[in-house]
Amino acid sequence: MRSAESPSVSPGEKLILSMLCDLNRKVEAKGMIDPDFLEYAIQGGHIWALEWQYPSLAHRHVNGQAHADLVIRILTMWGLIEKSFHALPEPEKARIMQDAGLTAELSFPGWHDESEANYRSIARFMTERMNLFPAFRRHAGRVSGEVLVGRYKKMLQYFDQLESDPADRLLTGPELAALLEQFQIEH
């Protein structure tokens, strides 16, 4: 739903935007904003059209540092889970998958599309725009049919209590099994 309020642009801002549109055309810059559309909208008093044409510029939502920090912790943990799992011998992988009730390859499950959209957006930004967590580039923004952040937090509680820093080593089979058991516990 679009904002009921019409954004306002001062005369000075109109002048600056118009000059930037001229400059953009002069250097033949290619970008997300069409300078002709922008200038016509401003000159014609159709500021409302900017929100329609470029909705990502009009929203007032900002993802916070706390959400970003949690995504980093979750992706770090799941990266180690995936890496450790792949390093295990096949019989141990099969046992862990059976114990965890997994029928497909062990992989980061993703985020609920509606209630965890902020986390998903942050994860995608980190992997696609910041080039962080390259192993997650294809699945950091995976959509899950379930709300999972609470389960990830439960896993992190266990993960944080491991005796030695798991970032310096691979997880053992029993540690993986215990982590996945935390994931199965419903809140």
Rank of each mutant, 00 (worst) to 15 (best):
E105Q: 15
L106E: 07
S107D: 12
S107E: 15
F108T: 13
P109Y: 10
P109K: 11
W111F: 13
W111I: 01
H112R: 03
D113A: 06
D113T: 02
D113W: 03
D113C: 03
E114F: 12
E116S: 04
E116L: 07
A117R: 09
A117D: 09
Y119H: 08
I122V: 15
R124C: 05
R124V: 08
R124K: 05
R124S: 11
M126Y: 12
E128A: 09
E128W: 01
R129L: 00
R129S: 05
M130P: 02
N131M: 09
N131I: 00
L132M: 13
L132F: 11
P134F: 02
A135V: 06
A135M: 08
F136H: 07
R137P: 00
R137N: 03
R138Y: 09
R138H: 14
A140C: 02
R142N: 14
V143I: 15
S144R: 05
G145S: 00
L148D: 11
V149A: 01
R151Y: 07
K154C: 00
M155A: 11
M155D: 02
Y158M: 06
Y158Q: 10
Y158K: 04
F159R: 13
D160F: 14
Q161D: 12
E163M: 04
S164H: 08
D165T: 05
D165E: 14
D165R: 10
P166E: 07
P166D: 04
D168L: 14
R169Q: 11
R169G: 10
R169Y: 13
L170Y: 12
L170S: 07
L171R: 02
T172E: 14
T172C: 10
G173L: 08
P174G: 08
L176P: 09
L176S: 07
A177R: 05
A177G: 04
L180S: 07
L180M: 12
L180Y: 01
